[in-house]
C-alpha cells in the first residue's frame, strides 16, 4: 500500500513531492516524547497503525498544486484593520497584520487564590512541583 502511494505521488506534478514515510514505532515514541505523553507498548503499536492510515489519507493533498497559493492564517482577515504604513509590514506579523493587541493598561485579573484553586499541589501561594535540579 505504501509503495503504491509513492508511485502515485510521483506521477502527479506537484509543487513539492514528498515521499510518504513509513511511520516506525521509534517515530511514535519520539513524537510522544515531544508531546510529553508516556505511551504504553501496546499504545505505540496502535498509534503507529492509526498515524500511518491517517497520513496515507492525507496524502491526497499532495496531488494539489499549491505553489502559487498563499496560506490562510487568519480566516477573516478582511474584517480586521488593514496594514498601515507600519515599518513591520512584510514581516511575519500574521496575515493583514492581524495581531490585535489591547492597550497596555493594568486591569483586574484572576485573584491569586482563584488562580491556585485548582492546583493539585501548592505552597506559600505558589504551584508546587517535584525537585527540578
Amino acid at each position: 500500500m505504501v509503495s503504491n502511494v509513492k508511485q502515485l505521488t510521483l506521477k502527479k506534478k506537484t509543487d513539492k513531492i514528498i515521499f510518504l514515510m513509513k511511520i516506525t514505532k521509534e517515530d511514535v515514541v519520539y513524537i510522544s516524547r515531544l508531546a510529553k505523553i508516556k505511551l504504553k507498548e501496546e499504545e505505540v503499536g496502535q498509534y503507529q497503525k492509526n498515524l500511518e492510515e491517517i497520513l496515507l489519507y492525507v496524502e491526497k493533498l499532495k496531488t494539489l498544486p499549491t505553489e502559487k497559493v498563499k496560506e490562510t492564517t487568519h480566516i477573516l482577515s478582511q474584517f480586521t484593520p488593514p496594514p498601515t504604513s507600519s515599518p513591520l509590514e512584510g514581516e511575519d506579523k500574521g496575515e493583514g497584520g492581524a495581531n490585535r493587541l489591547r492597550k497596555d493598561v493594568a486591569v483586574k485579573g484572576l485573584e491569586q487564590k482563584d488562580a491556585l484553586s485548582n492546583a493539585p499541589a501548592k505552597k506559600d501561594g505558589c504551584f508546587r512541583v517535584p525537585k527540578v535540579i
Binding site: 499549491t66 497559493v69 496560506e71 490562510t72 492564517t73 480566516i75
Partner: peptide
C-alpha cells in the same frame, strides 16, 4: 503549511 494552503483554496 500544505494544509494552510489548501484551506485558502477551500475558502
Amino acid at each position: 503549511l500544505k494544509g494552510l494552503k489548501v484551506r485558502t483554496l477551500i475558502k
